[in-house]
């Protein structure tokens, strides 16, 4: 059922587009070109020890996992309200609609990640795609957090429609607070210490670092894992509590 709903979600996202699913591959190429131009040439942003191409690789390998997470949470959190018509007429478990959206976000951005990885591997000397399988655990944990958070937020969104604005702001805030655009070493030591407790820093590093520098120190992202378990427990509790009231308030 989730696979079916995910297929419908994809069809809906790209319905009316003449290029359809090709956008999933084309968009990352355009985005990567933009990053290279803005950060590599205009900003001349650098990470210590890396050249311009190295910075673009660093940025991109952290950015795409984040895009997957952010897309999953943003779209997942409105999955129930967007499908109110369906939920009011067809007996489906509401969590499946959220799961389908998280799944499509990770599939699309995951595909984008692979495209970007291949391009970086072809045009820069900075990535080691051989380590890709070792990043799988971090991906799964990231998706689990996205799913748990989307469940909680989608339920709250049923009762509190203003949530959408807050979610957008929150996601932007987390992105800037996580070493994606910069490296943790660039900030003051106190901030560097705090990053040890940021599950997203842990997970982004778990995906980016093996591929960037064969740095395997984050391939077992325990901070991320602990946060994922906590999020899923909260989501499970909220879902059980609210399940039978959801459709009444849609």
């Amino acid at each position: 059922m989730i696979a079916y709903l995910a297929r419908q979600d994809l069809a809906q996202r790209f319905s009316g587009n003449s290029l359809g699913l090709s956008w999933a591959l084309l968009a990352p190429v355009l985005q990567l070109a933009l990053f290279a131009f803005v950060f590599g040439m205009i900003f001349q942003a650098r990470i210590p020890g890396l050249d311009a191409a190295g910075y673009v690789a660093y940025l991109s390998l952290g950015m795409w996992p984040w895009l997957a997470f952010s897309d999953a949470v943003a779209r997942g959190s409105t999955a129930l309200t967007d499908n109110s018509g369906l939920l009011a007429k067809v007996a489906i478990e509401p969590w499946q609609l959220v799961a389908a959206r998280v799944l499509t976000a990770f599939m699309l951005q995951g595909a984008g990640f692979v495209v970007v990885l291949v391009l970086l591997w072809a045009f820069t000397p900075h990535v080691e795609p051989i380590y890709l399988p070792l990043t799988l655990l971090a991906w799964v944990i990231l998706a689990a957090i996205a799913f748990g958070a989307a469940i909680c937020l989608s339920i709250v969104h049923v009762f509190f429609r203003d949530l959408q604005q807050i979610v957008q702001y929150g996601l932007t805030a987390i992105m800037f607070l996580t070493p994606i655009l910069y490296s943790a070493e660039m900030g003051p030591p106190a901030i560097r210490e705090l990053q040890r407790f940021n599950p997203f820093a842990d997970l982004v590093a778990g995906i980016r670092d093996p591929l960037m520098s064969a740095d395997l120190s984050h391939i077992l992202p325990l901070t991320g894992l602990a946060f994922a378990i906590a999020t899923l427990l909260l989501a499970g509790g909220m879902y059980r509590r609210f399940r039978r009231h959801i459709v009444d308030f849609l």
């Binding site: 709250v156 049923v158 009762f159 509190f160 429609r161 203003d162 509590r241 609210f242 009231h245 009444d248 308030f249």
Partner: peptide, 16 residues
């Protein structure tokens, strides 16, 4: 639910 304005929804969520 009796009412569906914003405040009533919030109260209902708290009650649940």
């Amino acid at each position: 639910p009796r009412s569906s304005d914003g405040a009533a929804r919030m109260r209902a969520m708290g009650a649940i």
